[in-house]
């Protein structure tokens, strides 16, 4: 049976954030902003959403008197990402096997 893609990851920006964080130990908000090409407000909303579900851990601190936001992926987030990639692979296999043309989430 085909597994549904996690809607919390199946969005361009949310997937970009998690994919970036999977490859590093921690990253600053501004680095994520640069890498994703997103706008400040949108990135902030998506990070907050992933923090609320426990995919991302957000730490607020200060550097030279300026606020600093550091993000890291949690164990739950890594697991969700792995499952997302597995579901994606399965779906692509199924799609090519049956000639399906629709998206799993559409």
């Amino acid at each position: 049976m085909f597994k549904q893609l996690d809607p919390l990851l199946h969005s361009e920006l949310r997937l970009k954030i998690v994919s970036l964080l999977v490859g590093v130990e921690s990253a600053e908000f501004n680095w994520l902003l640069e890498q994703t090409g997103a706008i400040h407000g949108n990135l902030s909303v998506q990070i907050n959403m992933q923090r609320e579900v426990g995919y991302i851990d957000v730490k607020k601190s200060f550097r030279r008197n300026y606020p600093l936001t550091t993000c890291r992926i949690t164990e739950k987030g890594s697991k969700a990402f792995e499952e997302y990639v597995e579901a994606l692979k399965e779906y692509l296999k199924l799609k090519y096997a049956t000639g399906l043309k629709t998206c799993a989430m559409c």
């Binding site: 361009e12 997937l15 692509l92």
Partner: peptide, 12 residues
């Protein structure tokens, strides 16, 4: 939110 195909997800 932007809708993505599976290929686009993999590319990202």
């Amino acid at each position: 939110e932007t809708k993505m195909t599976e290929q686009e997800s993999l590319k990202i």
